[in-house]
Design a protein around this nucleic acid. Sequence first.
RNA 1: GGCCCGUUCGUCUAGUGGUUAGGACCUCAGGUUUUCAUCCUGGUAACAGGAGUUCGAUUCUCCUACGGGCUACCA
Length: 507
Amino acid sequence: MTDAKVRVRFAPSPTGPLHIGGVRTALYNYLFAKKHGGDFLLRIEDTDQTRFVPGAEEYVIEALKWCGITPDEGPGFGGEYGPYRQSDRKGSYREYAEQLIKDGKAYYAFDTSEELTEMRDRLKLAKVASPQYNTITRETMRNSLTMSSDDVENQIAEGMPYVIRFKMPRKEEVRVHDIIRGWVLVNTDTLDDKVLFKSDGMPTYHLANIVDDHKMKITHVIRGEEWLPSAPLHVLLYEAFGWEAPKFAHLPLLLKPDGNGKLSKRDGDKLGFPVFPLEWKDPSSGEISSGYREQGYFKGAFINMLAFLGWNPGTTQELFSMDELIQAFTLERVGKAGAKFDPDKTKWFNQQYLRSKTDAELAEAIKPISEEMGYQKSDEFLAGVCTLMKERASFIPEIVTGGIYLFEKPETYDEKTVSKKWKEDTPDRMRSLMGDFEKIENFDSSEIEVVFKAFLERESLGMGAVLPNLRLLVTGEGMGPSLFEIMALLGKEESLDRMKTGIDKLS
RNA sequence: GGCCCGUUCGUCUAGUGGUUAGGACCUCAGGUUUUCAUCCUGGUAACAGGAGUUCGAUUCUCCUACGGGCUACCA
């Protein structure tokens, strides 16, 4: 298998929207696969029927597509190892579980959930360190190890519900090699007899992932650190089946920006940044969680930021396209420690991407936003807006909101500037300046500037005495981009009109 | 509680048995700019603690502390 084509999988369960930690796991899988010319597959792990959330699978697929993490195989993507939804493979798991029973490596268990809690309570009372269904306690429970084979057959024939449990061996050292962490040693005495096959006829994650990874010829399992504790079980399962295990890499977790703990759904809206790639509306509560796409993030910036949360190229380069990430990515350079999500850095990445776009590209991006706000402007005008605003925006919508005065006349005038700069004689000066502007035939920024400077010269005035007031009249603001360029963009008629209106309002 | 994983500036991180411990974000100070933003220059800021190995440990080992994960017929 070491020489086989690299095949990795991203295996989410459709229990809700994919959050950015999941996206990062998918991304690392994808980068690794592409780096080695391999396949990236999407497999839906929906063996828990009770946790199914409508729309979640569609969400995952749409999110991956938006990110540019396109599966080579998966539901809706084709592939020779399908189906790629575990519920559609339901029929294929039982035989494997029974094979294990035949080999003496698993057994039937008939205990009810009440009996299980009773057992755990009893052990807890007896101060057992870790109450679990294991090599000791299974002797006292109702299973095919303690019952006669006739009893077992009768129970099954009568339709008594049962599960199939893995018969954890006693006192064995299990060695799991992890590409990121090295060797992890665990004694089987600390492990329990995990359920492999549930009474509802579905396998648990543990069985399903081993069987499917084997059948789908997965070579590397790259998943979150939360799976590390069950990795020894998985290694044991591969041994029990006599299959070669894939290589493992357990990724560090994404942590909350403040305080501690795993990043969760709640953190995002609380701290004002999305935790999801796409907006998600909870089908039962109707609650909406914001998404990076809807917030105006560039997918490239989003991916770039995510890639750097737990990985780095070892150089000082920080801006990477997807292709560059593929080239540079190695699992060995993935860190061991969890990374706190940093909204500020995310913003910085987005700003870098925004500034690398052409005005025409940005114009296209702000068009729907401005139209939604009720402005119908030409592409040329929008590109002009972008020229002026891109240096002071981190996000696409800010180009419009930050330069709203480019779209409509000012309603109010910045009070601070008014009280500081607007004097008794200002209206007359502004009227005089208007007169000069009226004479300009070619109303472009350099011409406006020439006329403006000539005006200052003639009136013996400084920039500071006149320009802020002019800006106030034209934009209503005390600060902003080059005023001459703003006026040129607005045009002569509009600029003069704003001056006139403003003078009247402020006088 | 038990098992497992982890710990370098506030954050993301680089790094080596001997370095002025480097970069980026944030922040602060200056410069540029009519203003704001951008941009430029500079500054503050870290090896969790304790033992041990060693001529010498941030780096290797152990212990402690702290953080995290897992501990379901969930994934």
